[in-house]
Design a protein around this nucleic acid. Sequence first.
DNA 1: ACCCAGGGTCATA
DNA 2: TATGACCATGGG
Length: 224
Amino acid sequence: MIATREFGRTLYSVCDELMQNYAVDQWWPARSRFEVMVGAILVQNTRWANVDAAIKVLRARQCLTPQAVQALPVERLQVMVRSAGCQSVKARRLRSLALAIDEFGGLRRMACTDTEPLRAMLLSVHGIGPETADAILCFAFDRPVFVADQYARRWLQRMGFISARASKNYTHSQRSVNVLLNGAGVSHQALHAGIVLHGQARCGQLPQCLDCFLREICKYPYKT
DNA sequence: ACCCAGGGTCATA
DNA sequence: TATGACCATGGG
């Protein structure tokens, strides 16, 4: 088992490297909290390029507010998000989200709610699971939450930070990491952005050592 | 013609 | 609790 302190140092240097080589603060291109949430739902099992097209349509028609989304007939919403795939499913999910936000008391209220209850609120929305909820917490509300997605779990397992069994389960992976991550002072946004970018660049074949990781991420700088 | 992508839900066993 | 089908588009 890897010592906590060593793990913290490792991730700290990874984040440091990521922030120097990527525009990690711009990795998730969104102009508002709600836009991050919309993107988080639309990107489920889909490439970002397809999502980007859909968001441009929504933005052009000024539909990137919870109120505007609610006012829209579902059929209309489906047409607008078509490029993101699973249109009927995702249109419904966007409506559920918009409704839930209003019922909770709006974005302002969400922003000043503690992370745990906020996460529970997000998970109660039909169509938001653990990964989407954590991405929203991390990128829309700037909470120190680790997004234990497929890329992260593969990498963590290969690095020996978590067991093969834990890597198959989202919650187990996240819990293991959170314990080890305690006090490491990492940027969760930078870490997630870097892991995803790196995972994509390597087509899912993640390197097994930290040196390889750092070397590889430098070969794929952030591009718009 | 396949395969998959920055998942989640629902139905089975 | 753990898999598998399903959603459905666009790019390789």
